[in-house]
Simulated assay, not measured.
Amino acid sequence: MGRKVLVLNADYSALSICTVPKAFALVYLDKAELVSDSQKGYLRTIDTTYPLPSVIRLHRYVSLPFKGVMLSRQNVFRRDGNKCVYCGSHEDLTLDHLTPKSKGGKTNWDNLVTACRRCNSKKGDLSPEEAKLSLSRKPYKPSFIMFLRDFAGSIEENWVPFLGIKERT
């Protein structure tokens, strides 16, 4: 049961993504309500059938002072589509500092990119321009909603209104 469920705060803002068993438990224990169910199946017990949750809303508002995307190796890889920003390879990926740390480069979203080991070695302690490498995309810090929308894997159609995505055609 690898399906994901969108969790909304009490004000219908996107809060997180959880597993189906966790979402079902929240609804069953009356800590959340089912906003939308998936048409792709049901949860069955010996004598009862329940709708498969797709979007749930918590009854109590959860205050999150910081809703950012944590800077981690895997999150940088996700942002860059799991491919080298220089050559597009999917093999042997590493992190690369655009401005090398030895030249004062910081470890942050705007200075880290995904690079294959070959391109990273070619670039070495140089800037991409000095190494004659061009970026396929400029690095950026993803917002929380953007991260949920773009990097959470496949999303269900009934998540669209809550993630600020224009209707799909």
Rank of each mutant, 00 (worst) to 15 (best):
L98E: 06
T19L: 09
K106D: 03
L8F: 04
P21S: 06
K103H: 12
C119K: 05
E156S: 08
D11P: 07
A152M: 07
T169C: 04
A14Q: 04
S36F: 03
D96K: 12
N82S: 10
A32Q: 06
V5H: 06
Y140L: 09
K106L: 15
S13F: 04
L148D: 04
A32P: 01
V160N: 02
M146T: 05
D47N: 14
S154L: 11
K132W: 05
N108P: 00
L64F: 02
F77I: 09
L98Q: 08
M1D: 07
S38R: 15
D80G: 03
S102G: 10
F162S: 02
K132N: 15
E167Y: 01
E167L: 09
K166R: 15
N82H: 15
L163T: 02
V55M: 02
D96Q: 09
L163A: 02
S54R: 11
I17P: 00
P139K: 14
A10D: 05
L135M: 06
L135Q: 01
L6S: 07
R73M: 06
P142E: 13
L52P: 00
M70I: 13
L15M: 12
Q39R: 14
R60W: 00
G104Q: 12
L133R: 11
M70F: 05
E130L: 11
F144N: 05
L15P: 01
R57A: 11
G153H: 04
C87D: 08
